[in-house]
């Protein structure tokens, strides 16, 4: 005999039946808005741009996309392209600038960030406050950072030239100097993102138990030996994660460059690949097909890089 529960009847005053929402329906109600948004905003553009990268097409043209196979990729990677451009399409130049920028900027960030973390490792009065202050640049919007660093670099008004040079600062406009402009952007990026590296390293450093250093002192290890054999290996996984994040970001860098130099001086001395992409894809070029192909090349590069790092990280973890 199944038990019959003595459930009371519904309250007589509540006449309207409630709308019954089953678990399944509820699940769908929650999932689909997100899924639709994702499909419309991410999945569709991803595949549509993949398709466009194999076509000759302009976003503002009235001709439909014309299938040209891998021609766009060929042109970009072989550095040829439109015959009217004398020295090819200069995509390799953009990749080279991006690569140089990534190495300089990420390298410096790791050094500065790690050094800051070493300084802040030991707890002292006001430790929290100092850490928070150092983190501020990271929390600012890149566009804002770009605008006021432009002022800082300004040869006549800016404090940078004033501090760096005793002679007439007007001669030292870093952002207008083909040799120094990229370094100027690197300086800003390092200023902004070293705190991020510091934060990761700090987490790693603080997680190293004191007794390891005690054991090392007993084992008669010098400070340098301790750093090399305990500190560095222990922080390595976090350094690698910082390296991964910052390299990916460096390859995507657009906002700082757009704000500070927009690829200038000399037209393209600081034109990183993302900026080139922007120039191809939007006015006045509207070279949609070719820029899609360039975008895919960047995507593949970044994915390849990430995989390298993740593999290295895996090997570190095993060890």
């Amino acid at each position: 005999m199944s038990q019959v529960s003595a459930q009371p009847h519904a309250h007589p005053r509540r006449r309207q039946p409630r709308i019954q929402v089953g678990d399944r329906l509820l699940t769908h109600l929650f999932i689909w808005p997100t899924l639709i948004l994702l499909i419309v905003m991410n999945v569709f553009p991803l595949f549509y741009s993949l398709y466009l990268s194999f076509t000759e097409y302009s976003g503002i043209g009235d001709t439909p996309p014309d299938w040209v196979g891998i021609e766009n990729y060929e042109e970009i990677l072989s550095n040829t392209g439109h015959p009217d451009k004398r020295d090819g399409n200069r995509y390799w130049h953009n990749f080279a600038v991006t690569g140089r920028y990534a190495v300089m900027s990420v390298g410096l960030q790791l050094v500065v960030g790690f050094s800051l973390a070493m300084l802040l490792k030991e707890k002292f009065r006001g430790n929290g406050l100092v850490t928070t202050l150092i983190l501020i640049p990271m929390m600012l919007a890149p566009a804002v950072v770009g605008i006021f660093w432009k002022l800082i670099f300004d040869p006549s008004k800016g404090i940078f030239s004033y501090m760096m040079y005793t002679s007439n600062p007007r001669d030292h406009a870093w952002l207008a100097d083909p040799e120094l402009a990229l370094w100027a952007i690197v300086i800003v990026d390092v200023w902004m993102w070293s705190p991020f590296v510091m934060l990761l390293c700090l987490a790693g450093l603080r997680a190293i138990p004191d007794y390891l250093y005690e054991a090392a002192a007993i084992d008669r290890a010098s400070a340098w030996f301790q750093f090399r054999r305990i500190t560095l290996p222990r922080v390595a996984p976090l350094l690698l994660i910082a390296l991964l994040f910052r390299t990916i970001e460096a390859f995507k860098t657009f906002d700082l460059v757009a704000e500070l130099t927009f690829g200038n001086p000399g037209g393209d001395t600081t034109e990183v690949i993302a900026l080139r992409l922007y120039r191809e894809a939007f006015p006045p070029q509207f070279n949609t097909g070719e820029s899609s192909a360039a975008a895919y090349i960047i995507l593949i590069l970044v994915i390849a890089l990430s995989n390298l790092y993740i593999r290295a990280l895996g090997r570190l973890r095993e060890d």
């Binding site: 138990p209 007794y211 390891l212 005690e214 054991a215 002192a217 007993i218 008669r220 290890a221 305990i230």
Partner: peptide, 15 residues
């Protein structure tokens, strides 16, 4: 490190 002594820790303190 200047005392030439060895120390064995309760929780081993292995690297």
């Amino acid at each position: 490190s200047e005392r030439d002594i060895a120390f064995v820790f309760q929780f081993f303190a292995l690297y």
